[in-house]
């Protein structure tokens, strides 16, 4: 996923409104993206996570790392 990112891309919004399931591999991928964004002074935002995904983010305390945007 990191390889697919354009060089200049730094702020990444991920729409999680249709994502019903995330496991630790998925979380690892999000963190990897986050680290890439940070090295470019950007950030990863998670948009509208569904309740099950939000629950996992809170359980693993990653809601402290990612900005979670609800619209």
């Amino acid at each position: 996923m990191r390889g697919a990112l354009a060089e200049r891309l730094k702020n990444i919004d991920i729409d999680l409104s249709q994502t019903m399931f995330v496991d630790s591999c998925g979380l690892g991928a999000l963190i990897s993206l986050h680290k890439t964004a940070c090295t470019r002074s950007g950030a990863v935002r998670l948009l509208n996570p569904t309740p099950p995904v939000q629950q996992i983010l809170e359980l693993t305390r990653l809601h402290r790392v990612f900005e979670i945007v609800k619209k």
Partner: peptide, 18 residues
């Protein structure tokens, strides 16, 4: 729970918590 920048190591934590 591993550090927030660790990309691995959450599987067992999730199992135990859930």
């Amino acid at each position: 729970l591993p550090g927030s920048d660790s990309e691995r190591g959450r599987g067992l934590y999730l199992i135990r918590s859930l």
